[in-house]
Amino acid sequence: MIDKIVLAGFGGQGVLFIGKILAYAGMLDEQEVCWIPSYGPEMRGGTANCSVIISDEAINSTVLEHADSGIVLNQPAYEKFLPFIKPGGTLVVNSSVIDTTNSRDDIEIVEVPTNEITSELGNPSLANMVCLGALLNRLTTAKLSSIEKAIDEVVAKKRPQMREVNITAVKKGMAY
């Protein structure tokens, strides 16, 4: 079992962060993981993206030509990574800010109205976690319990008060 996942959005939307959560989730489940940033000049402002590979076997190549699934949080990320998803794959879309007129019918596009959900949660910065929840059901290598462990490790150690709201956001996303 292997998941190759791409995550993209504006710098500051927390795409590298949910990548880290996914990688920790895989590692804490004793799987092999790679968190691959797109490093370089573009990391300063503009679109940020990273890829995560989770596998129950050793990971060899970390060079992705296509991803099994992905999350895009803004329009430029959507345009850039729409063609990047393998046929039969999944793209989770932050539909509050992304126009999906230009689309594909050979992949599943999961539209998540993050604004509605995050205003319900009272924290607009959780759009990334909501989308992570929406992706979670489509992954073969991660489940809610492993994401919870990762949140404990990455978030709750420094800011315990943020634990519940993050998990709630993920759960809300899982409804999509």
Partner: peptide, 10 residues
């Protein structure tokens, strides 16, 4: 190479 420097792994 830079890829190895920047990639996170367990």
């Amino acid at each position: 190479d830079g890829m190895l420097g920047q990639t996170m792994e367990p």
